[in-house]
Design a protein around this nucleic acid. Structure first.
Lengths: 138, 138
DNA sequence: TTTAAATGCTACCTATCGGTGGTATTTTAA
DNA sequence: TTAAAATACCACCGATAGGTAGCATTTAAA
């Protein structure tokens, strides 16, 4: 009942960048040192976020990554989708492909409330909603 | 943001058994045929549930598994814990070991509601709460 | 008494996730 | 002009989750 490690990393990075307005460009090495995320793996994640259009890379010395679109337009669900394939294709908690009110799984009625609370967060929260103060980095 | 396949299987099996009061003993072969869960993997799961004390095995021909304690005493959280190690040790959605109101992660305030709705389900729902009618098996 | 049908157990296989190594390319400071 | 510092990319490695094979043991029906 949790996100993949890769999604955790991606959200940590983007929320760190989003709450550091004094800086425009972030190199992988800098992020790696600040957030203690494995350097090589982090380059891979940044490339995925770049290919998804959330951040843009400037190459060469003094290069790095910066946001490619407004913070308010980047939802959590989008971040997860960018780095995770199979970002739950099935909305059923027991993994059934076709589970609905007419033909529900055993947990269907109990899953409705948690599911909607999660959706509300994943679809509703954007990088612009994060509080810059007192955010844990490591 | 979902359960492991193994947890899905375990809950499917136990909810199937719990909502089939006309039958006392369930062989792995029978469950396998009814729920279309891989036979050999299912034997492994049933052994785990047996070792966790939720079900008891009767060996030999005509043997199988039956509940070892009252349905109302088997919570979802217990089922997941029985088949999954690392059944989220960290309550933080970004995986931080020490995340709390004083030193929160970026998503801390947004995760409170989904988290409590999930806990309510995992800790509150037991096998006795399931509706026998119209439950999807496959 | 034999044999079929069940669980118990261990070892292995395969795919995916998390993580590393190495090299090419780009850009700019020295 | 050169070298350092950055991203781009590809191939691989190790751990874990999901799944399989095979055989020993137990029990009861034939």
């Amino acid at each position: 009942m949790r996100l993949s490690k890769t999604s955790e990393y991606a959200i940590r990075v983007l929320s760190f960048m989003a709450t550091s307005p004094e800086r425009q460009v972030f190199s992988v090495m800098f992020i790696h040192q600040e957030l203690e995320i494995p350097y090589k793996y982090l380059t891979k994640i940044m490339r995925m976020l770049s290919q998804a259009g959330m951040v843009a890379a400037t190459q060469g010395r003094e290069g790095g990554f910066s946001f490619a679109k407004p913070l308010a337009s980047i939802k959590l669900t989008e971040i997860v989708a960018a780095v995770e394939k199979n970002a739950d294709e099935s909305p059923c908690i027991l993994g059934f492909r076709y589970c609905n009110d007419q033909k529900p799984c055993a947990l269907h009625p109990f899953w409705l409330k948690p599911k909607s609370a999660i959706d509300e967060m994943m679809l509703g929260v954007t990088l612009a909603d994060l509080d810059a103060k007192s955010i844990r980095k490591v």
